Amino acid sequence: MTQPRTATTFAPPVMEARRWLDGVTHPADRPLLNVSQAAPVDPPPAPLREAMALIVLNNPDAHLYGPVLGLPALRAEIATRWSHSYGGHVTADQVAITSGCNQAFAAAIATLCAEDDEVIIPVPYYFNHRMWLDMSGVKTVPLQTGPGMIPDAKAAAALITPRTRAIALVSPNNPCGVEYPAATLRAFLELARKHGIALIVDETYRDFDSRSGAPHDLFVDPNWDDTLIQLYSFSKAYRLTGHRVGAIVASAARLAEVEKFLDTVAICPNQLGQHAALWGMQNLDAWLAGERLEILDRRAAINDNFAQMSAKGWELLGCGAYFAYLKHPFAMSSADLAPLLVRDAGVLVLPGTMFMPDDLPGGETQIRVAFANIDRVGVETLFNRLSNLSY
């Protein structure tokens, strides 16, 4: 008997981790530090919420079906901004709006892959990417990362087969936080183009990159859309997590195929969320710049305070955007350690085993810390708790 598609993959990791909280109490002097999920817990900033309220009251179209590929004004705004910020040329018909970035990935894979095709993904990977590939009947081909958790295009070349349809990268990376060098992304684009496959680059966390200027030159290539598919999310930039607004930037021909997928699963992206994203892009540049500086300060706090962790045998494998990726010193799997941290330290993290295939080593020694919702003081508190543990 064949399995249904959903039975081919694992349970959602964040939901599994939340179940570790059941039955555990946290004393008033040691409240829970939840560093398990990379999503802002605060609502959108007040000016955006006020604008959204007016949209709800005064824009009847915000309550109706809209274009499957998204609001024309939002698509045009992204095209204009991307052309300017990346120094290339992106047109509105090369942009589609999706119901979050996860749907953008799902749509891209639906246009690329058939049963038993293959997609190369660096490990540790973003688990939802693996889950969608599983449920699509697509084989995940893991690419081991090198020094600094950076993937190597030459290593990826050895994994390409006649069934390979794409290489999928995330930069800044989830779960490791590292920012892929521009030369790395360029090497992957050239590799993908040489083999006639797609390069998917998920830039969900692009607004919190520590580098000034464009993080890569892929859009400068006049023929970028023959190979590149870029994904983006508004959830992090404007705290629109519950409104589910993402984007996919690709050739107009590919987006014609994407339209089939989107029309079938959602009909159109959330209209209110799209209007909010557009308002945010047009009015919140200064606010978003401040948010970026705050995230960069939290990243700095990780590095500033890690000496006490190093003294206890911890290693910092990667750090950036919303994440710090750590190697723990204990003689147990991170899958067993993570639930214990809830009880013994009041800390909820995700184990590295959630970001690695079961048959590859490494995940059992690693944990991911998502610091989107803890400030510099919270980082110090987290490290104080972790460095005082012994197992």
Rank of each mutant, 00 (worst) to 15 (best):
A11D: 13
P12R: 08
P13E: 02
W20A: 09
G23N: 03
V24S: 10
S36F: 09
A38Y: 00
P44L: 10
L48F: 04
R49V: 15
V56Y: 10
L57D: 01
L71Y: 06
A73V: 09
L74V: 06
A76F: 06
R81I: 02
H84M: 13
G88Y: 02
V90C: 12
V90L: 09
A92D: 03
N102L: 07
Q103N: 07
A110H: 03
E115F: 04
Y125H: 15
R130Y: 04
M131I: 15
W132I: 05
M135H: 06
T140P: 00
G146Q: 14
M149T: 03
D152A: 11
D152N: 15
A153D: 02
A157I: 09
P162R: 11
P162E: 08
P162K: 15
P172I: 14
N173P: 02
V178T: 11
E179L: 15
E179W: 05
E179V: 14
R186S: 14
R186F: 04
R186E: 12
R193C: 07
I200Q: 00
T204M: 12
Y205L: 11
S210W: 07
W224L: 08
D226S: 14
I229R: 01
L231E: 03
Y232G: 07
Y232W: 11
K236P: 00
K236M: 13
A237L: 13
R239F: 12
R244G: 01
V245P: 00
A250T: 04
A253S: 11
A256M: 02
E257I: 13
F261S: 06
L262S: 00
D263W: 07
A276S: 11
A276E: 02
W279K: 10
L284A: 12
L288T: 10
L288K: 07
G290F: 04
R292S: 13
R292I: 15
E294W: 09
A300H: 13
I302M: 14
I302H: 02
F306P: 05
A307I: 15
S310D: 12
Y322P: 03
L326W: 05
F330K: 12
A335Y: 06
P339R: 13
L341W: 07
V347M: 08
M356F: 06
D375Y: 01
V379S: 01
T381E: 07
L382S: 01
F383G: 01
L386D: 04
